[in-house]
């Protein structure tokens, strides 16, 4: 944007690099981020032992849900820490715009989410033998988009949490209803009218829909594009609300 001061774009990259450096200093967290989703999928395969048909339906949807939940938690805790340690207010007294700050965070966690999504997808397709009609590439795109959605919702949620306990509780409060209503357990058209209407407004509905389509349909259609567009709108919307909750000044 031309309105922003020179070098502002670079500040997003510096912020992203800084966030990634913090993560690199915490290898245990990195191992958990990358290893837990593939291991859970592997566990799921044995849970559905002998019902490979069911596993084939469940697994691709889980590919969207795992990265979203993990990215939600990591992002909300990381930004909450930044708000509480005083580093966020220090940054806000420096020449750094709120958008650069949030974009920096989103960039860093998107990269982490992408690596996680790629690993999980590859394990699912080549190790657990799940058939994705739409292909590995599209499955990875869909997994990344739901991880990004988790990141954006985490940034949003951290603004409303005063403590780490509250931030953790936002996961069951914000994500579980979406998981129940997204069409994973009961197809959406078999739910009551009210629930169906509510699920229309929940972002996870669209990630699940996209993942199901990619798993079942071999070609990319307008429905795919519509799902992806809606997910992108949710991501941008959550980021904008997140930016609005950052304040340079305290009220007195």
């Amino acid at each position: 944007m031309s309105l922003r001061p020179k070098g502002e774009k670079m500040r997003s990259f510096y912020t992203a690099a800084r966030v990634l450096r913090q993560l690199i200093h915490d290898p245990r967290t990195l191992v958990l981020i990358f290893a837990v989703p593939p291991l859970l999928l592997w566990l799921l395969k044995y849970v559905f032992d002998g019902q490979s048909q069911v596993f084939n339906q469940f697994a691709p949807v889980m590919l969207g849900i795992f990265p979203m939940v993990m990215m939600f938690l990591i992002t909300s805790i990381a930004t909450l820490r930044e708000r509480h340690s005083g580093t966020l207010s220090r940054l806000m007294s420096l020449p750094l715009s709120k958008t650069s700050f949030l974009i920096g965070y989103a960039l860093a966690f998107s990269l982490v989410a992408a690596v996680q999504a790629i690993l999980t997808t590859l394990v699912m397709i080549y190790f657990l033998g799940i058939d994705i009609s739409g292909g590995t590439g599209l499955a990875i795109v869909a997994a990344i988009s739901s991880a990004l959605l988790g990141t954006a919702m985490g940034l949003f949620a951290s603004a409303f949490a005063q403590t780490e306990f509250q931030a953790i509780q936002f996961m069951p409060a914000l994500l579980f209803p979406q998981i129940l209503l997204c069409g994973l357990f009961v197809a959406r058209d078999q739910m009551g009218d009210v629930l169906y209407k509510i699920s229309d407004f929940l972002p996870l509905t669209y990630s699940t829909d996209l993942m199901k389509r990619i798993a079942m349909e071999s070609s990319w259609s307008g429905d795919h594009r519509k799902d992806l567009l809606i997910i992108l709108c949710f991501i941008i919307g959550f980021l904008i609300i997140g930016a609005l909750t950052i304040r340079r000044q305290e009220k007195s």
């Binding site: 500040r11 510096y14 800084r18 450096r21 200093h25 915490d26 340690s85 005083g86 580093t87 220090r90």
Partner: peptide, 26 residues
């Protein structure tokens, strides 16, 4: 402004902390 709260990143080295803020300053 140096506040009473430390407002630095505990999970970065001293140099990484200073380098990040220096870059933010332009």
């Amino acid at each position: 402004y140096m506040a009473q709260e430390l407002a630095v990143y505990h999970d970065l080295t001293v140099r990484q902390n200073l380098a990040y803020f220096t870059r933010v300053l332009g």
